[in-house]
Design a protein around this nucleic acid. Structure first.
Length: 922
RNA sequence: GGGCGCAUGGCUCAGUUGGUUAGAGCGCUACACUCACAUUGUAGAGGUCAUAGGUUCGAAUCCUAUUGCGCCCACCA
């Protein structure tokens, strides 16, 4: 016993030590081995800027469990790690860092800024990796990749060029989600909608007099109500955008307005003359039924603008301030301008009313700024052709989602997929492999997509020397970088080195072989938040470039929330830091508690005290192991194993614990294979705590030197440690090393084989018989408490077993009943005869009499039996009723009917017995 | 507006294809430091499975509606 073998488990003594041991012995590495089945998971790459949060802890615990389980099962197991460059997020972090020096990225310039980001990455990029190691993650770190690695970047470029040549990537002007703070375009997925409380502003647009009179003179009746004044009223939530209006639209069927179609109105404040147009897209029910059209600032209006050949007036700078087209409002921020416009309109009497209005609008997923629909020239991926095969593989169940419900959500998104905006106006990321000829390319903003937009555009993985069209040498590269997810979607194969642009033939063929061996990967473990960002796109990219699915299973776990159900976030201050939990309770405790709470697909509601269970469990295992080791004759453990499974020679308790263990193990296997992690945790917990510690160890304490007991307790502990290892790797390694102290060359528990299920040891009958003994002991203890017998005092008990088999059972195991019931004498009665001065209780199989010096409270005794009689009679009645139902006999399965019949008989016997006992008490 | 999920003891949740008396952890009550473990042990209390109908021999489980809560998606300004 060394000094670390204290009564309380201290994870600090084990975790760091064994992680180093595993790494130093290269136990995490994998390479293709044709004789084994491959098992591979690619990690959802955390952001380089990231620090470990509970979501990571859960996500990576699950992956590590699967990885360690399959490694022990003998699969060639690769967990591919890495980090994501996380364009916008990282750029934001570094911008904040340089802001402390009073610098903006523009002050440094692109090249210097990117240098700073790389520096930052060198310094902090491994933070999250080290934190994953603290968690126990058994990734093959030698394979670790970063999405901006040179080789990986080649994959990104290659993919862009291929898709462009295929016609799947195009450049176009479009209204995109624009974040004025990050000053970049975002994809639809990056701008999630949130409800905001806004207003609906009703604005009067004056009708041009001569137009109006001509309309009226032609028109039959003038609708007094709708055009009582010289205005048409439009409703908008963003009044400042009126400065960019180039039309007003009404529904052609709208009787209120159809006389006005073609008329001209004066745009207030700007005094621009704009037309009233008709389009069926306009909803007559909403607002006034007349809508202002701002083609440069609203996706719907953009379409209208194109259709009706309207002018596109952009009124905003990229930072959200209004530009020169906004006249006197130039320079104001968009929200400031909203105020000013409203005030100006009010002053002119053109604001009819303001109504509160809840609307939902996009917000930047990186900085939460309200997104502005903004017209700009961007690059897009046509998604429909990529989606089609990705829909098929899921419909054909080549890829399965766990839990199933995500399948529909995935398919629904895929079937309604829209084109993906992939260009970002930031600096940190993969620069687009797009070059322009200064002579051929026209940069004008507003053009319709047509054949000539590609003129002078050169898409190439290497910088071209001259324009292929005109030979001009003045070539410049596109300033934009690609969406981070445009690199992440290649993760399952680009991490292996695809497209293998490697000089060295040997190295290349080695890498190619690796990809062939491990692709498609086995399972992807992730949170629901990134199904669309990442999972769906990986499926598309995998099929497009590998001609095969990237993974077979997708396991979606829940979101980690605080105890009130709120997402954990820094701003809410409700974060529970996994590192803090690891420091306080240990990584094993963290892992165990997390997965014991993660029912398939359910969100996890966490509070700090939830980790007590994991900590307590670790401590229980630790002390159970201490007990075993302290009492174990180590010299015998390994040599005698060959004679181990001579089942008949073993005591009922040995047979019982073996049966319990292997039936538990069987369920654990099934749970692991079906991603039911909370079951895994609870099964192992229940077995160790209640079966092994509460009963088994307590029983064998009384005969601890018995060689069978020695063997079985050793064997169970050893195999239990292996079965628990994927969940709690550190403590299991530490104890395993202690029981293998003499032959450390066995290596590590993590490369031992997964315990084999000995089906022949699973024995329901033994379990039932053992349960009878336990029941007797429980009843005796219960009766002691009832009449307040002190724990140290021993007592006399008599038992009347109802059946001969039970009698034999009690007789054979009377020693244990005496010990655990704290008896000085146990009498086994041949027939029912109530001994004097006893209180009694009845189990399913026995009558128990506790000899008692004091006066028996007969009324209490009777009441106890009465209660039993009532419940037994109820049971009898309900079951007997069932048996009398013809339909039940006819329709229910035979086994069920037979079961009920037996139960009725047993119930009847029991009632008779109870009645007899009751009468004797008189 | 569309879609999805959840309502089970004081709290947090399990309950796999409907089948005999619905489980666990925490908390609670009583007793106990009998040396593996007080991060513990022993015993116990506590649930008409949200509501109303329906299907069925039989429903926590399947169907319908209602109520409450949560989430996702969406170009009604």
């Amino acid at each position: 016993m060394d000094d670390t073998y204290t009564t309380a488990y201290n994870p600090k003594h084990t975790e760091e030590k064994w992680y180093r041991f595993w790494e130093e012995n290269n136990l995490f590495t994998a390479k293709p081995d044709p004789s084994k089945k491959p098992f591979c998971i690619v990690i959802p790459p955390p952001n380089v800027t990231g620090i470990l949060h509970m979501g990571h802890a859960l996500n990576n615990t699950i992956q590590d469990i699967l990885i360690r389980y399959h490694r022990m099962k003998g699969d060639e197991t690769l967990w591919m790690p890495g980090t994501d460059h996380a364009g916008i997020a990282t750029q934001n972090v570094v911008e904040k860092a340089i802001a402390k020096e009073g610098l903006k990225r523009q002050d440094l310039g692109r090249e210097k800024f990117i240098e700073r980001v790389w520096q930052w990455k060198q310094q902090y990029g491994s933070t999250i990796i080290n934190q994953l190691k603290r968690l126990g993650a058994s990734c093959d770190w030698r394979h670790s990749r970063f999405t901006m690695d040179e080789g990986y970047s080649q994959a990104v470029t290659e993919v862009f060029v291929r898709l462009y040549k295929k016609g799947v990537i195009y450049q176009d002007n479009y209204i995109v989600n624009w974040c004025p703070r990050c000053q970049t375009a975002l994809s639809d997925e990056e701008a999630p909608h949130k409800e905001i409380e806004g207003n609906l502003y009703y604005i009067r647009y004056p009708l041009l007099i001569d137009q109006r009179s001509s309309v009226i003179s032609q028109g039959a009746k003038r609708n007094k109500h709708q055009i009582a004044n010289d205005y048409i009223v439009v409703a908008t939530t963003r009044p400042e955008t009126m400065l960019g209006d180039t039309a007003v639209a009404v529904n052609p069927k709208d009787k209120r307005y159809n006389k006005l179609i073609g008329a001209t109105v004066i745009l207030p404040l700007i005094k621009r003359e704009i037309r009233i147009i008709a389009d069926s897209i306009v909803d007559m029910e909403f607002g006034t039924g007349a809508v202002k059209v701002t083609p440069a600032h609203d996706p719907n209006d953009y379409l209208l603008g194109k259709k009706h050949k309207l002018e596109f007036v952009n009124i905003m700078y990229p930072d959200g301030r209004l530009n020169e087209n906004a006249d006197v409002f130039k320079g104001m921020d968009r929200f400031e301008a909203r105020q000013a416009v409203v005030e100006a309109l009010t002053k002119e009497g053109l604001l009819e009313k303001i109504e509160p209005h809840i609307l939902s609008a996009g917000h930047c997923y990186r900085c939460d700024t309200l997104v502005e629909p903004y017209l700009s020239k961007q690059w897009f991926v046509k998604m429909k052709p990529l989606a089609r095969p990705a829909i098929r593989v899921v419909k054909q169940a080549k890829i399965r989602f766990y839990p199933k419900k995500w399948t529909r959500i995935y398919l629904n998104w895929m079937e309604n997929i829209r084109d993906w905006c992939i260009s970002r106006q930031i600096w940190w990321g993969h620069r687009l492999p797009v070059y322009y000829c200064r002579r051929c390319y026209k940069e004008e903003l507003v053009t319709t997509r047509g054949s000539d937009t590609t003129k002078g555009v050169i898409v190439s993985s290497v910088r071209p020397q001259r324009c292929p069209e005109c030979g001009y040498e003045d070539i410049y590269q596109d300033e934009d970088v690609l969406d981070t997810w445009f690199s992440s979607w290649l993760w399952p194969f680009a991490t292996f080195g695809w497209p293998f642009k490697i000089e060295d033939d040997k190295e290349r063929s080695k890498k190619e072989a690796e990809l062939r061996y491990f692709y498609p990967t086995s399972v992807l473990v992730t949170a629901s938040e990134i199904i669309f960002f990442w999972v769906a796109r990986m499926i598309m990219a995998g099929i497009e470039f590998m001609k095969d699915i990237p993974f077979k299973d997708v396991y979606i776990h829940g979101t980690v929330r605080d105890i009130e159900g709120k997402k954990m976030s820094k701003s809410l201050g409700n974060i529970i830091d996994p590192l803090e939990i690891i420091n306080e309770y240990g990584a094993d405790a963290l892992r165990f508690s997390l997965i014991s709470l993660t029912a398939t697909g359910q969100d996890i509601f966490l509070s700090k005290d939830k980790f007590h269970q994991g900590r307590n469990f670790a401590n229980k295992i630790w002390n159970a192991a201490r007990f075993v080791i302290m009492n174990l004759d180590m010299s015998k453990t390994n040599t005698d194993l060959c004679v181990f499974f001579e089942k008949e020679q073993l005591s009922i308790f040995n047979r019982w614990i073996l049966s319990r263990f292997y039936s538990t193990l069987k369920k654990v296997n099934a749970a692991l294979d079906n991603y039911r992690f909370n079951d895994v945790a609870n099964l192992l917990y229940g077995f160790l705590w209640h079966d092994f510690c509460d009963w088994y160890l307590e029983i064998i304490k009384y005969d601890i030197r018995n060689p069978h007991n020695q063997l079985v307790m050793y064997k169970i502990l050893e195999e239990f440690l292996r079965a628990l290892h994927p969940v709690m790797p550190f403590i299991t390694e530490d104890i395993w090393q202690r029981i293998h102290k003499d032959n450390i060359h066995n290596g590590s528990i993590m490369v031992q084989s997964w315990p084999h299920i000995h089906e022949e040891m699973i024995d329901r009958k033994t379990e039932r018989m053992t349960e009878i003994i336990f029941e007797v002991i429980r009843k005796i203890r219960n009766m002691r408490v009832e009449i307040e017998i002190k724990p140290e005092q021993t007592i006399e008990v008599s038992i009347y077993p109802h059946k001969a088999t039970v009698k034999r059972l009690i007789k054979e195991n009377s020693g244990i009943i005496i010990a655990l019931g704290r008896l000085n004498r146990l009498n086994i009665l041949d027939s029912y005869k109530r001994p004097q001065s006893t209180i009694s209780d009845i189990t399913g199989q026995t009558d128990i009499f506790l000899h008692f010096g004091g006066i028996i409270d007969v009324a209490k005794e009777k009441k106890k039996i009465e209660e039993k009689l009532i419940s037994e009679r109820n049971r009898y009645d309900s079951k007997n009723k069932l048996l009398k139902k013809v339909d039940f006999i006819k329709k229910a399965p035979k086994e069920v009917v037979e079961g009920i019949r037996q139960a009725v008989q047993e119930s009847k016997d029991k009632i008779e017995h109870l009645e007899r006992v009751y009468n004797e008490l008189l």
